[in-house]
Amino acid sequence: MFYRVRLRQQWSAPVELGVILSLVIGLVAISFSPIFIRLSEGEISPYSTIFNRFWIATVALGLWNGISTKRPEDSVSFLKKQPVYSVQTLGLLLGLGTLLSTSLIVWAWSLTETSVANSAIIHSLTPIFTALWGWLFLKRQIDGKFLMGMAIAVGGTLVIGFHDLSHSDSRIQGDLAALFSALLLGGYPLIVEQLKSRISPKEIIKGCSIVGMLITLPVVILTGEQLFPHTIHGWFAVISLAVICQIIGLGLEAVSLKRFSPEFISTCHLVTPILGSIAAWGIFGEILSPDNWIGFTCVLLGIYVTLLSRSAVKPQDAVNPLPLD
Rank of each mutant, 00 (worst) to 15 (best):
I199T: 03
S68E: 13
S240N: 10
L222I: 15
V5L: 14
T114C: 05
N118R: 03
I50P: 00
G234I: 00
S240F: 11
K314M: 08
A117S: 12
I30D: 00
L275R: 04
L214E: 11
S266A: 15
V159M: 12
G186R: 03
P201S: 08
L307I: 07
Q10A: 14
S103A: 15
I160E: 08
G62K: 10
I274R: 00
W133F: 13
K139R: 13
L61V: 01
E73I: 09
V243F: 02
G62V: 07
L23H: 02
L270W: 05
G249L: 09
D169A: 14
T130Q: 03
L301Q: 02
W109C: 03
L308A: 14
Q88H: 10
T267A: 15
T306V: 14
F264L: 13
S181K: 08
M213W: 06
W281Y: 12
L301H: 01
Q88M: 11
W55E: 00
A279G: 10
G97Y: 00
M1H: 11
T98Q: 09
Q194S: 11
E286R: 04
L308K: 15
I239E: 00
I160P: 01
P83M: 05
W107K: 03
S266R: 02
A242E: 01
N118C: 09
I152V: 15
N65V: 07
L179G: 07
S200E: 04
